[in-house]
Design a protein around this nucleic acid. Structure first.
Lengths: 362, 362
DNA sequence: TTGTATGCGTTATCAC
DNA sequence: GTGATAACGCATACAA
């Protein structure tokens, strides 16, 4: 079952010798070149197997000028959303027999620059920057020709482009549509004093906040109130709740699920009922949003699929010399208990509580 | 700011030519060889900079027989625990200027074999298998000499080794101690009918179950009851709760936090009070365990640190020709509301609810 | 159908 | 201090 212990690594030359052919023939046989006769092919394969030959991809890359590797830059694998993007990316890359190099840049410009440099050094065939803060133009410049996909770019320049618009090489979720659906939903429930709770100071945050304000305007529903907490405030639920308490709205749309779940906890700590006193909406629909108490209403974004799509685009781009296309992916509002009517739900028979209602489809 | 658009990639030869020296000299100058004169060194660096030279690591690896890359096999990046291991691993690798290749093997033997093969092909300087199901001996065989670290190995052979024992190249958390602390804690609270709720059929699950049974025996506390749900049951909370309902214990130690949080949700769906009727304990202490309602008592395992440790071991192993050492890392029981006294906690002033109590330190 | 020869970009060994 | 030159392992253009 297990290969022979490779003290010194077996090279193609050894295989060729063993099979009694030239290196060229061995190479062709192993790569399935149609011109090689069946018997030689078999002989070579056999030799490779018994010797435990494993090709040296560094050597192959050097010749072939392609590595069958993709690079993925993201902010932090500890964040479930980023991890899910990475999961989708790796999954799809693996299907096409590509390997993935991941660099966590910590959401910092210099980290992203270093990551790009590392990818160039390693000659990755394609690169994806997820939630990057680097200016798109700079990234493309630094890469000079290597296929690049920007996934939910978080650079300031992204705030101003009009919603729903596709951009070459950019994959995004339709955040604006999601926020709009949330606002509509809350208005339908009779909530009047709606607020946006931002977290961090990146483009995505500002974009969602702006979308909420727009939606309010579109509904002639008065102005949106705005609160803001730090990037990592969600690990300190009190801090999140305290940002609102004292000027409590009757509905809050949060930057993401992490913030929303922390808010839920913080409000409970202050004896404030959700959804009775305040309705809460999250963003992303991470798995734990369905397990909170009350279960969290949230805008579900296809994070895993976005990762998959990014990888697929890159794989395709390396084949055809074309640029990866852009995409704006639909999101949907998943309504759960945190925005239910004024009464808290009773114990639920069967799986009723799990049911979700689609209000908006990007 | 941005490098010149590299149509064809700049090679060392170009830099050398530009600086008016030989390739050898250029190479030495860039790597900081002390024998190169200051003026030439400067000239070379300058040339490299203006030309936008980026070294080709494939070529370098081919010569140097080391890649400055580490391989990480894990089951699934969508799982927060695995993602956190990966985060720690990448973080620490990056500090030592190593790049990380991640392959998700889906918890399947063949996937892990393929991953190892891919790593060998790419010549990674070290490899970590996290929660792998591959037999340790087989893994070492296939790798022939490449430093290997097994992180929380999940192969059957791991169940029988005695708890707390260190094994070369194996990094584990002291699961048994954690479970023991949980059992003691529950007994102290007066819970008598304690159960273990397993999930999946891997070694780690069996190991934790066995540790719980042992702890009960050690306390002369009667026999532990055992329940079991599928690997992915946590996404179907009803199913998790239904596994217990009908023979409800008054305390449950769950395989992990995901399962515990699902159980919390499922029990709530059935109107069963936690901790009033049942106390619930999780395992891992993922961030969301602190945000549930009730907040989850859980065994905190140093997942990120384990990833860091793994990477560090590998980096060190590549330097010194030695094998990576083994480690059993301490865990601690974090007591929260899900095992509080019989009364449900009132709204909490300030951060009282966040306080944790350390009961056991591996 | 197979073999020969060359080069991918670096670094190390040996000269000078 | 610096420069030729060879070699890492592989894949291909060209010959046969």
């Amino acid at each position: 079952m297990s290969d022979p212990p490779l003290g010194e690594r077996v090279t193609l030359a050894r295989v060729a010798a063993q099979a009694g052919v030239s290196r060229a023939t061995a190479s062709r046989a192993l790569r399935g070149d149609s011109r090689i006769s069946a018997p030689t092919s078999v002989a070579v394969r056999e030799a490779a197997l018994t010797l435990g030959y494993v090709p040296n991809l560094a050597a192959r890359s050097l010749r072939a000028k392609e590595t069958h590797a993709l690079g993925l830059v993201l902010a932090d694998l500890r964040d479930p959303v980023h991890a899910m993007v990475a999961a989708g990316f790796e999954l799809e890359a693996a299907k096409a027999d590509y390997t993935v190099i991941i660099v966590a840049a910590g959401g910092e410009l210099d980290g992203e620059r270093r990551a790009l440099r590392a990818f160039i050094e390693r000659g990755t065939d394609g690169i994806c920057i997820a939630s990057g803060v680097i200016e798109p133009h700079e990234a493309r410049d630094r890469l000079g020709g290597v296929p690049l996909v920007l996934l939910q770019p978080d650079h300031a320049s992204q705030v101003t482009r009009s919603a729903g618009e596709e951009e070459v090489g950019v994959i995004r979720a339709d955040d604006a549509a999601g926020v709009r659906a949330a606002v509509w939903h809350l208005r339908e429930l009779g909530r009047r004093d709606i607020a946006y709770l931002g977290s961090g100071d990146r483009a995505t945050n500002r974009l969602r906040g702006a979308a909420a304000a727009d939606a309010m305007r579109g509904l002639n529903a008065g102005t949106l109130r705005s609160f803001q907490v730090a990037d990592d405030a969600w690990t300190r639920p009190r801090e999140v709740a305290d940002a609102l308490i004292g000027a409590l709205p009757d509905a809050v749309i949060c930057y993401d699920d992490k913030t929303a779940l922390a808010l839920l906890d913080g409000l409970r700590g202050s004896g404030i009922d959700v959804p009775g006193r305040v309705a809460v909406v999250g963003f992303d629909d991470i798995p734990f949003a369905a397990l909170s108490n009350p279960r969290l209403t949230t805008v579900s974004t296809p994070v895993v699929e976005m990762g998959e799509l990014a990888a697929r685009s890159l794989v395709e781009a390396t084949g055809s010399r074309a640029l990866p296309p852009g995409r704006v992916l639909p999101v949907e509002l998943v309504v759960r208990e945190s925005t239910a009517g004024y009464a808290r739900p009773r114990p639920l028979p069967a799986d009723r509580g799990r049911r979700t209602e689609v209000l908006a489809r990007g």
